[in-house]
Design a protein around this nucleic acid. Structure first.
Lengths: 205, 205
DNA sequence: ATGTATACGTACCGATCGGTAACATTGTCA
DNA sequence: TGACAATGTTACCGATCGGTACGTATACAT
């Protein structure tokens, strides 16, 4: 089991030495398939077939399927925080509005017919074994999310900031799961409204 | 694909004609393995090995692995409603106390070191394909849970009962997921407290 | 032209996947 | 005791799993 491969991909840095084209296509295809149908459900053969490459090309860029899954999640992590920070930056200094903006978007996304929940959450469910490469990425993402939600709850002036932050996290995770369980018209579309009620109840003394 | 097998097991009815002993052991082992490590992660070979039987024995009682998974979830469904009704029956006529009792127990369960979330939720994540036998059981369970939570919210006199019921469902699903993601000391232990705050905010006009 | 490094393709590996055919064993009741 | 049906066992199936040995094509520097 070698560990010295280029797990961290330099995707189109513009002028660096060598941009591996196959790796990007592989990761793009894997991203789509892993998210839509699950990591365990997809074999490497299907990935390379859809990417128009061959298996050795995959294993030259990624040490294993597990590490490819971890790379998929690292990409997911990037895009997740993009969405999160977008909501945050839209309402500077107003954490309650930031949460509302983020959850309004989440609520909308969960109502899309092809919604499949949070890639991070799903991966953690698929890989319960501690220490699995994919699970590690997922856990790190969730712990950072918890940290930020608690900080935002504190900035709102909540009586018990940690409890409110955790409550918001529960609502968010619930929305991710309910979105893929119930589909359109499911409970997930109420996440922003319920979060606002919970915040309201946690502020007043 | 035959469908006329004895999926519904008569487990130890005491004096009926034929109690299939192997089927029960298979289902017990499958229950444990499927829950702890995931359905896709467990092969039928491991199940029959741990159950002390052989593969044909499994396939005489269950038409397929998918149907065995569905049977596992039907058993899970039974035990779930047992726990739920226990909390309900402990506080007749007081839906708010019923919810509190149920969520207090959920919060405690999520803090156990071997906690692996809700078998129903996990199965739905593992099998996103619509119509999968396991997923159908999971979806039915969740829809019934949603129905009952909304009814309880209405009985509490909530301003918007459907929103409160859905909010409680989000918190519950969030607790299931967070329990297995964060382990001990995670956000799930606040589920009862957050639910009570949300209820409080949803009642007052 | 020729070395050298790198990306890619063909063909294959053993292991495991879910599932089954054919046969042996057992319990039950006439 | 004999007949029958249900259960258990041995041995195997084709397909797919993740992963690899090894030869080939291409680009650039000398």
């Amino acid at each position: 089991m070698r560990t010295d491969k280029n797990i961290e991909l330099t995707i189109s840095d513009g002028h660096a030495p060598a941009p591996p084209k196959a790796a990007k296509k592989i990761l793009d295809v894997a991203y789509d398939l892993f998210y839509r149908r699950g990591i365990r459900a997809i074999g490497v053969d299907e990935i390379v077939k859809r990417a128009g490459v061959t298996k050795p090309s995959l294993y030259r860029s990624f040490p294993s399927k597990d590490e490819l899954a971890a790379s998929y999640l690292r990409q997911y992590d990037l895009e997740f925080w993009e969405r999160f920070d977008e909501a945050v930056n839209a309402h500077p200094g107003d954490p309650r509005a930031q949460i509302r903006a983020f959850l309004t978007r989440v609520g909308k996304r969960t109502q899309r017919p092809d919604y499949r929940g949070c890639g991070m959450t799903n991966a953690a469910v698929e890989y319960p074994e501690r220490g699995h490469p994919a699970r590690l990425v997922s856990e790190a993402n969730k712990q950072e999310l918890r940290r930020r939600l608690r900080a935002m709850a504190a900035a709102m002036g909540a009586q018990d900031a940690d409890t409110l932050g955790d409550g918001l996290l529960l609502l968010i995770e619930g929305a991710y799961i309910s979105g893929q369980l119930f589909g359109l018209g499911g409970p997930a579309h109420t996440v922003a409204r319920n979060a606002d009620l919970l915040i309201e109840a946690s502020l007043k003394k």
